[in-house]
């Protein structure tokens, strides 16, 4: 299993992702600098969290023009697994690999806390190891996680099971109170049409080891390993 972790200037969860992929899951893992124009053969690319290019203009807006993103798009188009976490999700929406946009949080605050999420679709390479409707805990840490899309796009996502994670109460109800940032329909994570590109605001890579807290991210990494064989 070969993982590549993209590193932009300002990425700050790249080491966490590397640690997860290499030390916890034993994957052959490498960092990929944003200036790379050629990728080794990989099974999964992780676009990590952080503040790529200082969030200048809009989160992820400058990163989408990085040389490496052309390669990430090609990799995604050829069916490779791509997961964008937090700022990585913002980079993937800006790059149009995923629809919609992550706007400033409803209450304008940077939110750093554990949240509970309901797994909405287990029929993806990123969620196959979860149970349908399972509620899992992961941390969020973002100021711009308020998912927005136009009504047609939203309908397309909902009708095709492309909403993969939703912010929920601990007992799995989707309520306004469970929505930390104002995201439409409590959306925390989505997949592309083909199902091989996923973005989510919560941090699965920070929710893998009991000594550090919740372990809701395990199912996600388990799923990727299973999907990539």
């Amino acid at each position: 299993m070969k993982f590549g972790v993209i590193v932009f200037p300002g990425s700050n969860c790249d080491h966490d992702c590397y640690h997860a992929a290499k030390h916890i899951y034993g994957g052959d893992t490498s960092y990929i600098w944003h200036k790379e124009t050629k990728l080794d053969s990989l099974d999964c690319i992780i676009v990590p969290g952080g503040f790529s290019y200082g969030d200048y203009l809009r989160p992820g807006a400058v990163a989408k023009g990085s040389p490496v993103m052309n390669e990430v798009v090609k990799f995604a188009d050829s069916g490779g697994l791509v997961i964008g976490i937090c700022n990585g999700f913002q980079v993937l929406t800006e790059s149009r690999l995923l629809p919609g946009v992550l706007m400033r949080n409803r209450d304008l605050k940077f939110i750093c806390e554990d949240v509970t999420l309901r797994v909405e679709n287990v029929d993806t390479p990123f969620t196959g190891s979860y149970e349908e409707g399972e509620v899992v805990t992961m941390p969020i840490a973002h100021a711009d996680g308020n998912y927005f899309a136009d009504p047609d796009t939203l309908k397309e996502l909902e009708d095709n099971g492309r909403v993969v994670f939703r912010y929920s109460t601990p007992d799995g109800r989707i309520t306004g109170e469970a929505n930390p940032n104002g995201s439409l329909s409590n959306i925390a994570g989505i997949v592309n049409k083909a199902g091989n590109v996923m973005g989510l605001m919560p941090h699965p890579e920070r929710a893998l080891e009991e000594i550090l807290g919740p372990i809701g991210g395990r199912g996600l990494f388990d799923s990727i390993l299973k999907a990539a064989g």
């Binding site: 809009r58 807006a61 023009g65 800006e94 946009v101 136009d150």
Partner: peptide, 8 residues
């Protein structure tokens, strides 16, 4: 291409 995100 860059300055605006026409989604929003």
């Amino acid at each position: 291409k860059l300055l605006a995100n026409t989604v929003m």
